[in-house]
Write a protein that binds this DNA or RNA. Structure first.
Length: 396
RNA sequence: GGGCGGUUUCCCGAGUGGCCAAAGGGGACAGACUGUAAAUCUGCUAGCGAUGCUUUCGGUGGUUCGAAUCCACCACCGCCCA
């Protein structure tokens, strides 16, 4: 059902279109993380549309424990539930195995973990995860995987990726069965497999070969940005992305900083998601092309510039750093909301700039310039960030 | 005029002779956060030539080896009686 079409390339970086029943996504794309069916910080589906986001990500585990995937199915599925008609990717709950489960409770059948809400035991395996995702009716379902710690031993990782590969077969079987049923919310639901193997490149490659034997709709690289260095992450991508299908989208899960994303696009990645723009936004940490600002800092008390000069987001067009800082310090929800909206715009717009640079054939120089500007060690010393510079510019 | 209670480091507030530069909270300041148990968490908040020294618990003086803590007087605040 899905169609992945490459529009243009520069080296390994590529601009492609991914057609789904919920619309076409231009890649490289950033998926806006709305774990419980909403981007935290008071961001509505309206807001997401207004700032031009293409796709949203929600979580299987969280929606299962509250309010329940069966309820959402009865209400017509997640798209209808959250009044969002563009694509949705649901994460499988695999990451919650990493963050919530006792590692000793991981069995061949699946994982038992305790609800973070009331502590009750929850069992989730490949079939359960896919059933929930089918009930939600997301555009793309993710395979149920285990995300081993970056410090896991090679022996542990080997066992884990073998199990994740076996789980993938079960996910595929379950989804095929559910997609063929009459009462399925989205009978065209897609499935992405997830590559694991920690920082062991040979295990990564072995696992990639194994999971690509199944004809899935896309492939993710998981288990990165969980404690290893950026260099290790880029090294894994250099090794494993070439073993993922060229005619299908590649998704780097949970990543990352603007620089991480640029480096990963350069290594052939199409899909990204990260809590940074929303979580950091809630904490007053906002992104610009010249590094981040921590708006709660005293230096912005009387700074009436927008977060970033020239930014076309609805926040920068109207509000000052000083006002947003005031809202954050006063504990007003509007402060978190404005920061989050700016950050989401920044991330989504960054992806557009990336696609344009690839289309224009200027990717290599664009990338170099963008990474240089984003480098805070360099940027914090430039005059453009000093209030005195701004005063002079304004005076003209 | 009389009686009682109070005055603590930016704020509130604990502390009634040494373990007190002084609990706890707030505020301020700074940092962290990568498929969201996160509008959260952590650090820090007298000064300095810094394993020590100096200044600080309303003010002044006293008792004591030693005082935020005990005594005297003074100032101010609150309540009650005239």
């Amino acid at each position: 059902m899905a169609e992945y079409k490459i529009i243009s390339t520069c080296g390994r970086a590529k601009h492609a279109e991914f057609k789904t029943v919920h619309g076409t996504v231009q890649t490289p794309v950033f998926m806006n993380v709305g774990t419980v069916g909403a981007v935290k910080g008071g961001v509505s589906s309206d807001d997401l549309e207004r700032i031009g986001t293409q796709i949203e990500l929600s979580n299987t585990y969280h929606l299962h424990v509250r309010t329940g995937d069966e309820v959402i199915k009865r209400l017509g599925g997640l798209h209808k539930f959250m009044a969002w008609n563009r694509p949705i990717l649901t994460d499988s709950g695999g990451f919650q195995v990493f963050s919530l489960a006792d590692i000793r409770k991981i069995k061949e059948e699946g994982v038992t973990f305790r609800s973070h809400i009331d502590g009750h035991k929850i069992f989730m395996g490949p079939e359960e995860s896919i059933q929930i995702q089918s009930n939600l009716g997301s555009t793309i379902a993710m395979a149920f995987d285990e995300c081993p710690s970056s410090v896991a031993t090679r022996e542990y990782v080997k066992d884990s990726i073998d199990r994740t590969a076996r789980w993938l077969v079960r996910c595929k079987k379950k989804l095929d069965e559910l997609n063929s049923r009459e009462d399925t919310v989205n009978p065209h639901q897609l499935l992405f497999g997830i590559n694991q193997g920690a920082v062991y490149n040979d295990l990564r490659i072995e696992h990639a070969k194994r999971i690509t034997e199944l004809d899935l709709d896309g492939y993710a690289v998981g288990g990165l940005a969980v404690g290893e260095t950026h260099e290790q992450m880029y090294d894994v991508l250099d090794h494993v992305v070439p073993y993922l299908p060229k005619n299908k989208p590649t998704y780097l899960m949970g990543v990352g900083t603007p620089a991480n994303i640029i480096e990963a696009v350069d290594r052939g990645v199409d899909f990204f998601d990260c809590v940074y723009p929303s979580r950091n936004g809630r904490h007053g940490h906002v992104y610009t092309h010249h590094g981040h600002l921590n708006l709660v800092n005293a230096q912005y008390t009387e700074d009436d510039r927008p977060i970033e000069e020239g930014c076309q987001c609805p926040v920068c067009k109207r509000y000052s750093r000083a006002y947003i800082r005031h809202l954050l310090k006063a504990g007003e929800m509007l402060g978190l909301r404005l920061c989050t909206i700016h950050n989401l715009y920044f991330y989504n717009h960054l992806m557009e700039e990336i696609r344009n640079a690839i289309d224009d054939g200027t990717w290599d120089t664009w990338k170099k310039d963008a990474l240089y500007a984003l480098d805070e060690e360099h940027e914090k010393h430039t005059v453009m960030h000093q209030p005195a510079y701004y005063q002079k510019v304004r005076a003209k």
